[in-house]
């Protein structure tokens, strides 16, 4: 018999689909967290594949900070409609009321909108399982997290008390109030994600592709002036540069790179030849090398 040996992408795809189906079958109220980034795009695409011809049997949820790029909001609505899924948008009302923003509040911005916002949203809707697009190759502490990661009723992660994960037998049992974060892309690398987007023609936010955009250089980061809420410091003027983003978050906190890469192969080429790792564009985990682990214990995804 002629064996059809599966490629690494086919094996990764089959594994992710298996994980999603287990969650759909064994948990009561799952949700897919959707950040509109490239990893979310791949995760959503895999969900469509996992349940076809049914739509994915759970809603999409965006924990919004109101400070994302406009292009992200546009794609968010379209992607949910295309998949035939309900879209839940949660904005932390307290953060909204207090006018928390990245210009005045620094780390509190991420904490209130994202960390607290996520906990609120999960509690509000009573979701007992939430898919996230994190990958193990992103960061050292993620390399050790399980695919099914348990959170206490207070959303805390205990790295010392993880369940052993054998074969593809996922233990989804939990006590009332506890929830599971599920990472179906755990074994994908950044290159795999890009290659898959390329092969499968997955729609991503245009900001990943290079184009002339209004920018300001500040504290070693290249920021994009995405809307009129951008606060210029003395002497700052928007300068049009050919830029793109390797990672997307709140626009005043996300650094762009100068680039001419306007197609997927060019992006991948640039990524492979570049020598700085992915998360460096985000201001969030620069402080200290163990900071991501701390954030995660506190409930940051």
């Amino acid at each position: 018999m002629s064996a059809t040996n599966l490629t690494h992408l086919q094996r990764l795809e089959a594994e992710s689909i298996h994980i999603m189906r287990e969650v759909a079958a064994e948990t009561e109220k799952p949700v897919m967290l959707y950040s509109v980034g490239k990893d979310s795009a791949v995760m959503l695409h895999l969900a469509k594949k996992a349940f076809y011809p049914s739509p994915p049997p759970f809603p999409l949820m965006h924990v919004d900070t109101t400070w994302k790029f406009q292009a992200m909001y546009a794609l968010r609505e379209k992607a949910a409609a295309d998949a035939g899924m309900e879209l839940i948008v949660h904005q932390n009302p307290e953060a909204k009321e207090r006018g928390i923003n990245p210009f005045d509040h620094g780390a509190m911005h991420t904490d209130m909108w994202k960390t607290e916002g996520l906990k609120q949203a999960l509690d509000l809707h009573g979701f007992d399982a939430a898919f996230g697009g994190a990958r193990r190759d992103e960061e050292k502490s993620r390399a050790k997290e399980r695919i099914f990661s348990f959170r206490t009723a207070n959303h805390r992660w205990d790295p010392k008390n993880q369940r052993p994960e054998l074969w593809k037998l996922y233990n989804t049992r939990k006590a009332a109030g506890e929830s599971i974060r599920v990472f179906p892309l755990s074994n994908w690398t950044e290159l795999d994600i890009w290659q898959y987007i390329h092969l499968e023609n997955i729609e991503i936010v245009p900001l990943y592709f290079s184009a002339p955009r209004p920018t300001v250089e500040r504290d070693g980061m290249l920021l994009m002036v995405d809307d009129d809420r951008f606060r210029f410091r003395d002497g700052e003027q928007p300068v049009t540069r050919s830029i793109r983003f390797r990672t997307l978050g709140c626009y005043p906190l996300t650094g762009a790179v100068e680039s001419e890469a306007a197609t997927l192969p060019e992006i991948i080429q640039e990524m492979l030849l570049t020598t700085t790792s992915e998360r460096q564009g985000r201001a969030i985990d620069h402080d200290q090398s163990a900071s991501m682990e701390k954030k995660k214990q506190e409930g940051y995804f």
Partner: peptide, 25 residues
């Protein structure tokens, strides 16, 4: 990886790493 074990200098859990060559991931 994890902060505590880095101080002890001992790997205490299962961690997954990724690399690829021309032929395989």
């Amino acid at each position: 990886g994890l902060a505590a074990e880095r101080e002890q200098g001992i790997t205490i859990d299962v961690a997954y790493r990724f690399f690829s060559t021309e032929k395989r991931k």
